[in-house]
Design a protein around this nucleic acid. Structure first.
Lengths: 149, 149
DNA sequence: TATTGTTATACTCTATAACTATA
DNA sequence: TATAGTTATAGAGTATAACAATA
């Protein structure tokens, strides 16, 4: 029972949908909102949640290349939000850790991010938000496991 | 009743989730797959589905800036997939239309896109795919209406 | 004076390869 | 020789402002 309101509804496709949402979101996640740019924010969140992580792990976890990781960590260190120190067991590795002030900045940014999400997802009920997040997480996880093959 | 499998499961947030999915997807949508780059493909799809659209409409519908629209249309015209012609009622405007060969190229690309999506969404059942698409469409629509305010 | 589209410019992001230091 | 990280470079994406034509 397809209700056709305005002609044959074209199927934009999941990928296009995601791309448009990404762009729409990017427009409203300025540095002024989070207190830092979005990618460093996302990276710092991962660092906090995965103590003792390495740059290599950041690459694969956040789908970034080595170069971007370096640049973002430079930025985070310049703001004194994170530090790199050599892994004593393998001196090629850097262990990345969040600082106390990084933790505070991240908590502030998290609050801003939450209110942004409330605004962005206002069309959805709490249960629907949970649903969409759960589904997207599963999609992402399947992409990780595929990448590992 | 939170099942804690591996410590306090951090909430990555909808925005981060979307960003990672976007990046993961971008890595596998090369030109060789669709026969054209992804953004022109997405744009051409909109042009087909909205006959008589203008560049200004493309901007707001696809969350692009005027500059990007010009560049993408240049690319599409070079490939003879679309044409711009002056609107006789307002000679400042360009009316953008898909060509016959653009339509054929788009149909081929659509097939490739569908098989890509099958692969990307393989973690989800058909009903779940419908659900996630429907929810994301609603989020996007609410962002449009907000942008209009 | 405002709008549509174009051009120019700069800045970010991404991808790649060359380099270093360690293993 | 292989790996972790860094640096350098080029390409694509995005944002901004100046501009021409038209309203």
């Amino acid at each position: 029972m397809d209700v056709k309101k305005d002609g044959p509804k074209p199927d934009p496709g999941f990928v296009s949908l995601l791309t448009q949402l990404y762009k729409a979101l990017n427009r409203r996640t300025g540095e002024d909102l989070l207190g830092m740019r979005f990618k460093p924010y996302m990276t710092l969140g991962y660092i906090r949640d995965h103590p003792g992580t390495t740059q290599h792990e950041l690459e694969s976890a956040l789908f970034m290349d080595a170069n971007s990781v370096v640049l973002i960590l430079n930025e985070l260190e310049a703001a004194q939000f994170s530090v790199r120190r050599r892994d004593p067991h393998d001196r090629r590795r850097h262990i990345v850790e969040i600082t106390a002030s990084g933790r505070r900045a991240l908590e502030r940014a998290d609050k801003a991010r939450e209110s942004l999400e409330d605004e962005v997802l206002r069309a959805l009920s709490p249960e629907e938000r949970k649903t969409v997040r759960g589904l997207l997480e599963r999609v992402l996880e399947s992409m990780y496991s595929e990448a590992r093959v």
